[in-house]
């Protein structure tokens, strides 16, 4: 499992092992101030990061910046 979330400290406190920092609480995988295409590109980048995290061996809690 990979946890995509904005408030990384909470994720670390509650014990997620693979963490990908997200954009903001009300829109973790988007940014309303961008245009539609740019916003989707941003989302794709975050997902790619999440998929990369899933394919990486970790020994403990790891944040994929």
């Amino acid at each position: 499992m990979v946890h995509v979330c904005t408030i990384v400290p909470i994720s670390l406190t509650v014990g997620a092992n693979r963490i990908v920092p997200a954009v903001a609480i009300p829109h973790p995988l988007g940014n309303p101030s961008l245009g539609r295409d740019d916003e989707k590109k941003l989302r794709r980048k975050l997902i790619e990061k999440a998929l990369n995290a899933l394919q990486t061996e970790v020994s403990g809690q790891t944040v994929f910046e």
């Binding site: 609480i25 009300p26 829109h27 973790p28 995988l29 988007g30 309303p32 916003e39 989707k40 989302r43 794709r44 975050l46 997902i47």
Partner: peptide, 18 residues
Amino acid sequence: YDPVYANEDLDRVLPVDV
């Protein structure tokens, strides 16, 4: 949280499109 952005496009919370 402020639901306005999620309600406009829920892919921002659940990235189904990508």
